[in-house]
Amino acid sequence: MENKEFLSKLKRGISEIISEEELLKKLSRKTPLRVKLGVDPTAPDLHLGHTVLLRKLRFFQDNGHKVIFIIGDLTARIGDPSGQSKTRPMMSEKEILENSKTYQEQVFKILDKEKTEVVYNSHWLYPLGLQGILELSKNVTVAQMLHRADFKERFKKDIDITILEFLYPLIQGYDSVAIKADIELGGTDQKFNLLMGREIQRAYNQEPQVVIMMPLLIGTDGVKKMSKSYGNYIALNDTPKDMYGKIMSLPDNLMLDYFELLTDFDINEIKKLIKNDPRAAKAKLAWTITAQYHGEEQATNAQKEFDRVFSKKELPEEMPEFRTKQKEWLPVELIFKAGLVSSKNEGRRLLAQGGVELNGEKISEQQKISIDKEIVIKAGKRKFCKIILEK
Rank of each mutant, 00 (worst) to 15 (best):
K9C: 09
I17L: 05
E21R: 08
K30W: 09
T42H: 06
D45E: 09
L46K: 15
H50S: 09
V52N: 05
R58Q: 13
G64F: 01
V67I: 14
A76Q: 06
S92L: 03
Q104L: 03
F108R: 01
D112S: 15
K113W: 03
T116S: 02
V118T: 13
Y120K: 05
H123D: 15
L130E: 15
I133V: 12
L134Q: 07
L136N: 07
K138A: 04
V140R: 15
K152V: 01
F155Y: 12
F155H: 11
D160Y: 01
D160P: 00
T162I: 13
L164R: 15
L167A: 13
G173A: 00
Y174D: 00
D175I: 08
K180R: 09
I183N: 03
F192P: 14
A203R: 13
Q206S: 05
V210W: 02
V211L: 04
V211Y: 04
V211E: 05
M214Q: 11
P215K: 06
L217I: 00
G219E: 02
N232A: 06
I247L: 00
D266Y: 03
I270T: 07
D277W: 02
T288D: 14
T290P: 03
Q292Y: 14
E296S: 08
E296N: 07
R308Q: 09
F310N: 08
K313W: 08
R323L: 13
K327A: 12
E328P: 10
E333M: 02
E346H: 09
G347C: 03
S364M: 12
E365S: 07
K368R: 08
I369E: 12
S370P: 04
I371F: 07
E374I: 05
I377G: 01
A379R: 13
A379I: 14
K381I: 06
C385L: 11
